[in-house]
Design a protein around this nucleic acid. Structure first.
Lengths: 201, 201
DNA sequence: CACTTTATAGAACGATCGTTCGTTCCTGTC
DNA sequence: GACAGGAACGAACGATCGTTCTATAAAGTG
C-alpha cells in the first residue's frame, strides 16, 4: 500500500539481518537507524516501542521460515520424501533467508527461555507450531506405510530438532565443515530405525 | 589466599547465576554491583574490564561442568556405563550447578557464534574439548567391545550434543515435562544402533 | 604500633540506551 | 492551488552503560 508500509518493511529487512548477528535482544534503535540512514525517531515511529520491533522481527522470521523451508517441502507428496525435504531445506535456510549470523529463532529461543513476556511467548509458540508440523508430517509417513505403526511422531520431531540444533552449532561455532553431512547421517539413521523394513528387529 | 580472592569468587558466583538468566552478554556491572551490595568501581577493580568478567564467568562455567558432569561419571568404569552417566549428569547439571536460567554455555554458544573475539574463542574451545571428551569416551566403549568397531566416535558425540540441546529447549522453553525421558530414549536408541548385539543388521 | 599493600567507595566522564515532543516535509485529495 | 494526514526529522529527556580518577578504609607485614 502506502509508502509507510514500504519503509517499514525495509527497516524490518535490515533489523532481521542485524538480529541474526547480535540477537533479537541485542537490537538497538540507534544502530538500526544508522544502518537504514534514518533518524532514530523516524524509525521508532513505525513500531511504537522496541519490544514491538522485536516482535515484528520474530514474526518476520517465522514467516520466512515457512516460505523457505516448509512451503517448498510441502510440494512433495506426503511421506518420507517430504520429511527429508524439510530437513534439507531446514539445514540451509540461514543461507536461503538473509541470515548472515545464523538462525534468529534458535538464538532467540536460548535468549528468552527464562524471561517471561511477549517475546518468549512468540518464539515459544513458533517452535511449538514447528514441532506440531514435524510430528504431523511424521504421522503421515506412518499412515502412508513408510514408517512403522508404533512410531512416536513427537519423539521423532524431538530428535529432528536436536539434529538441527547441533548442526547449527557445529557449523557456525565449531566451524565443522562436515556438520551438514553429519546431520543428514543422523537423520537417515533416525529414519532407518523407524522404517518398516527394519521391523523384524 | 587473601580476602580479594574470596570476594572475587563471591562476585563470580553471583555473576554466574545472573548470566544464566540474562546471558553472558546481558551481564552489566551496575546490576551485578547492586546484587552483591558493592560499588560499581569496587567490583570493577577485580576484573579490569567487562570482557574479562565475562571470560571469568565462562571459565567458571566450564570448571563447574567438569566437576558436576564429567568427574562423577569418570568414576564409572570405561564403557557404556560411563557414557550413560555423562548423559544423566549432563541432563540435569543446570539443577546441580546454580543455574536458575538454564545452561550458560549453550546460551553463550548461540550468542557469540558469529561475534569474533575472546569470548567466542573461549566458548568454542570449551565445546570442542567437550566433543573430544565425548568422542574419547565413545572410543573406549568401542575398545571395551560394547560398541561396534565401525562406530564413528565423532558422529556419536555430535548426536549426543544434539540430544542435550533439544532437551534443554524442550524443558525450558516449551515446558515439556517429558524432555528428559525423550532425551534418554533418544540416547538409548543411539546406543542400540551401534551396540555389538545389533551387528547382524 | 608503624608502614605498605590491597580492597572498596564515591563522584564523575562520555557514550548510548529507549522514548517523547514539536516541527517540518512530503504525498495524495478536493 | 489550498488543504489534510501521514512520514520523517532534530533536539532533548532521564537512565544506564563501561570506565577512570582520587580518596578512604581495611588487611597484611615487619
Amino acid at each position: 500500500m502506502g509508502k509507510g508500509e514500504h519503509t517499514r518493511q525495509a527497516i524490518l529487512d535490515e533489523a532481521f539481518a542485524l538480529a541474526s548477528c547480535v540477537g533479537v535482544g541485542g537490537l538497538s534503535i540507534g544502530m538500526l537507524a544508522e544502518r537504514t540512514k534514518m533518524s532514530k525517531s523516524g524509525l521508532f515511529a513505525h513500531f511504537g516501542s522496541k519490544e514491538e520491533l522485536q516482535l515484528a522481527v520474530l514474526r518476520e522470521a517465522q514467516q520466512r521460515f515457512a516460505e523457505v523451508v516448509l512451503r517448498p517441502a510441502f510440494r512433495q507428496p506426503r511421506g518420507l520424501g517430504r520429511l527429508r525435504a524439510i530437513v534439507v531445506n531446514w539445514l540451509d535456510w540461514t543461507r536461503e533467508a538473509n541470515l548472515p549470523g545464523g538462525c534468529v529463532i534458535n538464538a532467540a529461543a536460548a535468549e528468552f527461555d527464562d524471561q517471561p513476556g511477549p517475546l518468549r511467548d512468540e518464539v515459544r509458540n513458533g517452535l511449538l507450531a514447528l514441532r506440531r508440523t514435524l510430528a504431523e508430517t511424521v504421522a503421515k509417513a506412518v499412515a502412508v506405510g513408510e514408517l512403522r505403526a508404533d512410531t512416536d511422531p513427537e519423539q521423532f520431531a524431538f530428535e529432528m530438532e536436536g539434529i538441527y540444533q547441533v548442526a547449527q552449532q557445529s557449523r557456525r561455532l565449531l566451524n565443522d565443515p562436515d556438520a551438514d553431512r553429519r546431520a543428514l547421517l543422523a537423520f537417515d539413521r533416525l529414519v532407518r530405525d523407524y522404517a518398516v523394513d527394519s521391523a523384524k528387529e
